[in-house]
Each structure stands twice: as C-alpha cells, then as structure tokens.
Simulated assay, not measured.
Amino acid sequence: MTEIDQGIQYMKEGKLEEAAQYFTDAIEQDPKNPVHYINFGNLLLHMKDYQRAERFYLKGTELDQEAATAYYGLGNVYFEQDEFEKAKKSFQKAINLGLEEADPYFMLGMTFLYDEQFKLSLPYLQRASELNPDDADVQFQYGLALAQTQQLDRAKEVFNQVLEIQEVHSDAHYNLGVISLFEENIDQAIVHFDKALEIQPDHLLAGNGKKQIEIMLEDNQ
C-alpha cells in the first residue's frame, strides 16, 4: 500500500489526524504532484473546512489544469456553501474534462435543483440515473425534478423504481401519494401516505396529506 493509499484508508476509517499527517508528508516529498493536494482537499472537505479545502483544490488545478477531480472537489466546496453559480461552473468543468461518472452529473443536477432551476437540472439528473441505476438517492432526486416540471407519469415510474431499490423509502411513498391526489385516486394516495408513516412515523408531510384527505372526506359526507 502506497503512502497516499494509506492516507485514504485512514480517511475511510475516520482517522482524520493520521490521514492529514500522511497527506502532509506526501506533499512535502512530492510537492509537484496535484493528486496529493486533491486528496488533502477531500479530507478538508470531509471536515467541513471549506476555505482550506478550496485552497488545496485550487493548488491542484494550478499544477494540472486538466485535473477533473479537483474541479469536482471545488464544486462540492461551493455547493456546501450555497455558492451555486460557482458550483455549476466547477461541476461542468469536471464533466468537460472527462469525469464521466454519476457523481458530477448528480451534483450538477442537484445544484440546479437547489437553485430552483428544475428544468435545467433534468438532463444532468437523468444522466446520473443512467450511470448509477441502482442508487436510490440518485433515482429519487431525478423523480423529484420530473415532478417539479409536471412530468408526473414519468416521475411516478421513477419513484416506483426507487421503491424497487429501497422498499422502505418514506419520501418515495409520500411523493407517489401526492401524484395519486393529482390523479384523483384518493384511495391510492391514502395507501402511500400510510406506508410513508409506517416507515417514518414522524413524516410531517405524509401526516398532513392524510389529515387533509380525511377532512375532505368528512366535508363530502
């Protein structure tokens, strides 16, 4: 195991001080290698030390202007601080440099989603869902974007796919309940709200949705 691999292993084990020391030693021994700065940036990002993480990622890009993972790291730094415009540019740069993985597409889509640019989020979340079809969170966020853009039939399909991956997904059931209300299928909506509450008894939205249905049914009697 190389020194840098050992540092990553320490990170996975939660031994952050040991990881920091290994990455520091690696930089001292090979200060021209951008990978060491990127790995230290990843550690600092994990520790929520965003200012220092940004500096290390930027150093990585200075040493290698095509270091896609450095730009991906920068995107995460900016995303965590709600600097969505900077995050978009960084994630897009990582993709343009060939980081053809689900994560940068997913995070770029999430940045648009958090910035309430729902239509712009769709192609990136769709691509992430294609690259990582078995990830419930990726599929769920894609379903949300579809629902936000009123593509309810497709959103319904995706939320059902989420439940195939993760049967106990309260938010997927809640959103299927909301779609059922739009379809005027009250019985199905109640089934989904009940399922969401069974999985997560304190699910406020599902509880409120069920209560509104009960009030509506009482008024119609």
Rank of each mutant, 00 (worst) to 15 (best):
L43Q: 06
E214I: 10
L58I: 07
D194M: 10
L43P: 03
Q9C: 09
F182I: 08
F112E: 00
V77N: 11
Q150N: 15
G7V: 05
Y50N: 10
Q21R: 13
L97T: 12
A67V: 02
K211H: 07
I190V: 15
K93M: 08
Q29I: 04
S170L: 09
E164K: 12
G207C: 05
M1V: 08
I199D: 03
G41S: 05
Q92V: 04
K89F: 07
L163H: 00
I213G: 05
D135E: 08
A172W: 12
E83L: 11
R127G: 01
Q51H: 11
P133W: 07
L97E: 05
F118Y: 15
I4N: 05
Q65D: 15
I186Q: 11
A136H: 09
G60D: 13
I186W: 12
A68E: 15
G60R: 11
L113W: 02
F140T: 02
H46M: 13
H192L: 08
E164N: 10
F84V: 01
K48F: 10
V191Y: 10
Q151T: 12
I215Q: 13
H173A: 13
N76K: 09
E157A: 05
N33A: 12
T61I: 11
N132T: 05
E83C: 06
T2M: 14
Y50Q: 03
S170K: 09
V158W: 00
D171W: 08
S180N: 13
Q81R: 10
L44W: 04
E66H: 13
A147M: 14
T69R: 14
G207P: 01
F112N: 00
L108S: 00
I4S: 03
F193R: 03
Q9G: 04
F140A: 02
F56G: 01
H192A: 07
N208G: 04
